[in-house]
Nucleic acid binder design. Structure first.
Lengths: 331, 331
DNA sequence: CTGAAAGCGCTAACAG
DNA sequence: CTGTTAGCGCTTTCAG
């Protein structure tokens, strides 16, 4: 169904149809009425693509994600909250998880959709630092290195302190960590928080107790196995995100360990899924939805001509105590 | 960044760049090499929109949703599971919740994106029955009335029976229901299950105990208030989905009611959020993720030339007992 | 092997 | 008030 066909059906030219569709002046009420009728009858709707190619503004905001998983979909919910009644539409774009092909998927996505399909974009956990796109772009949980982009993130350092302090407060002294994606500031700060918490408590960090989980289930499982197979395994594990923590829980169960009896596990993010596990996961909450909301709000501001100031929003984190942590079994 | 600019930079024509980009024959290795270099150096990526307009296939699957909320994002996660390693990309499109403007957003979306932006689409809880689009389209949790589309849905009738039987088994006889969106088969079947469970137990349904929640938080809150303000209020409420159940929980708390002491509440869906409430929600689980997965798998088959048979997938539901239901307080 | 030119569906000048 | 026309960025014949 093209505008051509509508025009033919209505017995007018395409430009007339276009004018009617966009409420432009210069069409007689009669013609307008008639064309409108044909449009409705045929259920015609202008192709987003053709329109995008021609117009500068599309009134569509893009959310670019590596994959649809608990974190990115929470961001999406927040983005939806912010977009409602703004007159904008939302497109979420994912390469289907095939991101390892090249790092820098976000730059590729960006050039594919910016300027045509979308007016602006929010990048969720981008992998590269040099995404200095000229258009309006906001990053959520950004890559390490100073990107020139406005960013929104949780307070990862304080959050990690919260989590590890909780473990230490419970009496744990031998604490493992499944670390996150090394290229993200969030992961780095969480590890730093882990170390600072130890230092503050006068504890040494045993480097063999750190294992790379990379924010990925499989990788985290491998890391957990390594940690738990140690001659002197940790009595508690701080996972850099909930996905990893859930993987640790799984591995612990496979190895016949009781959580929290034999092993305490704490995550980071508080994605909704974290409450579904058995036992429910103690975790550090990060206001993900709000991060998505604020990112879009920021973007909408940018689109509205706000200066691309060096905005770096940091949202507070809190401890959510559920049942995967407890005092260590006395020796 | 356009192909023009790349061509200029490389000192060749746009058609040559296009050929190189798409690996077409008829370019000398030297030229190809050189152009490739320029492309990489400039970080050029072809505009999705321009390419879509010209090509028949885009290798992109669309998921069309009314809004990004817990249900649709679960479907999205499942869709992502199915798309991985298929070579397709995923675009989720939402009008930003402004769906009440017109019913039939899905038909409008469809004509906007089908044939250009996406090769096929998954419709999540469409509002109209006559979405007989000729292209490859699959509906998840479809509208009432026999649509000619392949559909994927949970076993709503059995699920509702499960939920209400649980309440009755606990000893409740005065059970309210916050009903769903009347135009969806899912909502109708859940109500039918509610009635059948009563009949099977020899209980009468008090019609004043049914209130329209429409799968919406606000509407569900109103419904809950009406139900709980009744002279003889129900001792248990079956909500047509978790969103509504969560609203009931909220209202109960506002009215000073203890759940499950004064009121048992059961939901439907088991979205991850349902475990986060206080108390955690007892609910009927529907394999939403799998529904998204299967819908995309179906679509991929269609795209691959499978016949558009009258496929109606129905996935089983199960009861998830958490802490929002208990026996009624003895009178 | 390379480039010029047409056209995908639409909008915006510009003529009539 | 209406229609003709020139592109938006790209792919694809078709000549050179």
């Amino acid at each position: 169904m093209t505008m051509q066909q509508v025009a033919a059906e209505a017995g007018v030219s395409v430009s007339t149809v276009s004018k009617v569709l966009n409420g432009r002046y210069g069409v007689s009420p009669a013609t307008s009425q008639h064309v409108m009728g044909v449009i409705t009858r045929l259920g015609y709707e202008a192709s987003l693509v053709a329109r995008s190619l021609r117009n500068r503004r599309t009134n569509v905001i893009g959310v670019l994600v590596a994959d649809f998983e608990p974190f990115s979909t929470e961001v999406l919910k927040g983005a939806a909250d912010a977009i409602r009644d703004s007159g904008f539409e939302l497109v979420a774009y994912s390469a289907g998880g095939r991101v390892d092909e090249h790092v820098g998927w976000e730059r590729r996505y960006l050039s594919r959709v910016m300027g045509t399909l979308v007016d602006g974009a929010v990048l969720v956990t981008p992998t590269v630092t040099d995404v200095q796109y000229d258009g309006p772009v906001v990053a959520v949980d950004p890559h390490t290195g100073r990107s020139s982009l406005p960013t929104v993130a949780g307070d990862n350092l304080q959050g990690a302190r919260l989590g590890v302090d909780h473990l230490i407060g419970l009496g744990h002294t031998r604490i493992g960590m499944v670390t996150g994606r090394p290229d993200l500031v969030s992961a780095q700060l969480r590890e730093r928080g882990f170390r600072e918490a130890h230092a503050a408590a006068g504890l040494d960090v045993d480097e063999s107790l750190l294992a790379l989980g990379a924010f990925e289930t499989e990788q985290a499982r491998v890391a957990a196995h390594r940690l738990l197979a140690l001659p002197e395994p940790p009595t508690a594990v701080f996972a850099a995100n909930d996905l990893s923590a859930l993987a640790v829980l799984e591995v612990a169960r496979e190895r016949g360990l009781d959580v929290p009896g034999d092993l305490s596990v704490i995550g980071f993010d508080n994605v909704p899924e974290s409450a579904l596990s058995d036992p429910p996961l103690t975790t550090v909450e990060q206001p993900i939805r709000r991060m998505g909301h604020d990112a879009v709000a920021l973007l909408l501001g940018l689109l509205d001509g706000a200066p691309v100031a060096d905005t770096q929003l940091t949202l507070p984190t809190t401890l959510v105590t559920r049942r995967s942590t407890a005092a260590p079994r006395p020796a």
